[in-house]
């Protein structure tokens, strides 16, 4: 059953803008989509390698800043009399650079922080995100610090033969986010289905066994961290060009918390988990908003989170998979992640 979730999602969500005219709900879906991409990227680390990164928002924020600064331009002086001046460029270039730079950052951070595991890893990643936030806050010459980067242009796509298309409307941005989400999904699906994915899962299940079988732990984890960071960076870029203003608040710890909630409640280590979790916890605040007082909304949000984990400690998707597996013993008990399935979605 779970193998059907992703294609079903795609069909349903491709059709949404055709009947949904409410811009507020469209906006909620776009933001939810962006955070779901983050959740998918976090799932690669948390779900498949078992490494809990609580600094994931750092890559999201770096992606947002790289993309915004590429589009807006900057003029910054560095030590030793160096000076970098950049005239504004195209947002698409920003998107590409965001992916590249966050990928490299993810690689470096991976090299550093995979020296430790478990709780230590958790804290290193929090530390990294805090340091990045404080740099964004204090390096005013580059980031304008708390004064915020404003008037960030919308994403522009060059269409062959048709000139540039600037994505201004909700519907255009919606399909952009959906497109990037589908690509991200496919990247994760391909990756976890490969030999490499088996190495990741091996490390998660039993690190010493995997090592004895010749898995290069640091290399495997670092590659996962690189891809994961690059995807979060892409999401950050989408965010910057959609919201059109960023300040050091893009590094809010609560964004990381949202991503972790989406992954763990949805079901870590399953392809569909972050999609289901992302949708539920992305749209839950929207559903609660008209019903109750602001403080009560947060209390109910926390309560639902606890309730889901009590009933389904492994998350929603694995719980559903188990349910169907029990009914049809013939099918897989584990979430299917075969190459055939990944192919079926493309």
């Amino acid at each position: 059953m779970t193998r059907l979730i992703a294609p079903l999602f795609l069909v349903v969500f491709a059709l949404v803008p055709l009947w949904l005219n409410d811009p507020y709900l469209m906006n909620a879906l776009i933001i939810t989509g962006i955070f779901t991409i983050c959740a998918m990227s976090l799932n690669l680390l948390l779900g498949y390698t078992g490494q809990l990164s609580l600094g994931h928002v750092a890559f999201f924020g770096i992606g947002a800043y790289v993309s915004a600064l590429t589009a807006l331009g900057f003029d910054v002086s560095l030590p030793f009399g160096l000076r970098i001046t950049h005239e504004g460029g195209s947002p698409l270039l920003g998107f590409v650079l965001a992916i590249l730079i966050t990928g490299v950052t993810g690689y470096l951070i991976g090299r550093l922080s995979f020296r430790v595991r478990g709780a230590y890893f958790v804290i290193v990643t929090i530390s990294f995100a805090e340091v990045v936030r404080l740099v964004a806050l204090n390096w005013v010459e580059l980031t304008q610090g708390p004064l915020a980067l404003t008037s960030i242009p919308n994403m522009t796509l060059p269409l062959p033969g048709l000139g540039d298309l600037t994505l201004r409307t909700k519907m255009q941005n919606y399909y952009l986010v959906l497109g990037v989400a589908v690509l991200s999904y496919l990247v994760v699906a391909r990756l976890v289905a490969s030999r490499f994915g088996r190495a990741m899962r091996g490390l998660k299940e039993n690190e010493s066994l995997a090592l004895s079988l010749g898995v290069n732990a640091t290399r495997t984890l670092t590659i996962a961290a690189t891809v994961s960071a690059a995807m979060a960076g892409a999401a950050g870029s989408l965010y910057a060009h959609y919201i059109r203003i960023i300040d050091p608040d893009v590094f809010l710890f609560s964004y990381t918390v949202t991503m972790v909630i989406m992954v763990v409640a949805g079901g870590k280590g399953s392809l569909a988990g972050p999609l289901v979790g992302g949708l539920i916890f992305g749209l839950l605040p929207v559903a609660l908003r008209p019903v109750m007082a602001p403080e009560a909304q947060w209390i109910v949000y926390g309560g639902i989170l606890i309730a889901i984990l009590f009933v389904m400690p492994n998350g929603i998707v694995p719980a559903l998979a188990n349910l169907t597996a029990r009914r049809r013993p013939a099918s897989l008990t584990k979430t299917p992640e075969t190459p055939a399935e990944a192919g079926a979605q493309s």
């Binding site: 478990g118 763990v264 403080e295 947060w298 926390g302 606890i306 400690p313």
Partner: peptide
């Protein structure tokens, strides 16, 4: 018997409830 992520998330949920309750 749950892993560190699950308990951490439950603690996050409890933290949200405690903080919002205090504000309320």
């Amino acid at each position: 018997r749950s892993d560190i992520d699950t308990t951490m998330l439950v603690m996050i949920g409890a933290g949200i409830i405690l903080q919002s309750g205090t504000l309320w």
